[in-house]
Amino acid sequence: MLENELTSQIIDKDAYKTEIAKKYTLFLAQYPEIFSDLIFGSNFDFALYDSLEAYDKESPIDIFNVLRNRNGIEIKPGKAVDSDLELALSVNAVKKLIQTTAKQEYAQLLGTFYDDPDEVQGWIDFILHKRTQTLIDMGYGKFAQTAGILKDDDDIYSM
């Protein structure tokens, strides 16, 4: 399937606990192609935290799940029973991410929040629920590169 054919579907739009999560789902729905490297059936949770302490205690203010299906992505509130991983984001990071106007800008900022996490400016992290090798086979390595989380070697170090 070509990237530009991918579609997004947001389920239960009114079921989100927070406005910021709702805005973020609308934002992500613009870029289903970010998820194109994942195999059908992959799904992971986006968990939003208002502090690092809340992250330590595993108590997000809101959480939603993105499922990669045959057509594109399906976003629904709450966490999945058997998600592949959790992408944890600070609310401040999400506020900035949804202000970006292009996919590349979004990926770059997401990468910055991973590389240089800051409690005030914003941060992201992820918790793997499946084995790394399984996730690589599902396309998460490539996804992480497209999403700006894992860097290309040339980006990491160049003289």
Binding site: L52, Y114, D115, D116, P117, E119, W123, D125
Partner: peptide, 9 residues
């Protein structure tokens, strides 16, 4: 690893 990343600087 997360702890290291948050204290990278």
């Amino acid at each position: 690893a997360t702890k290291l990343r948050f204290n990278k600087s």
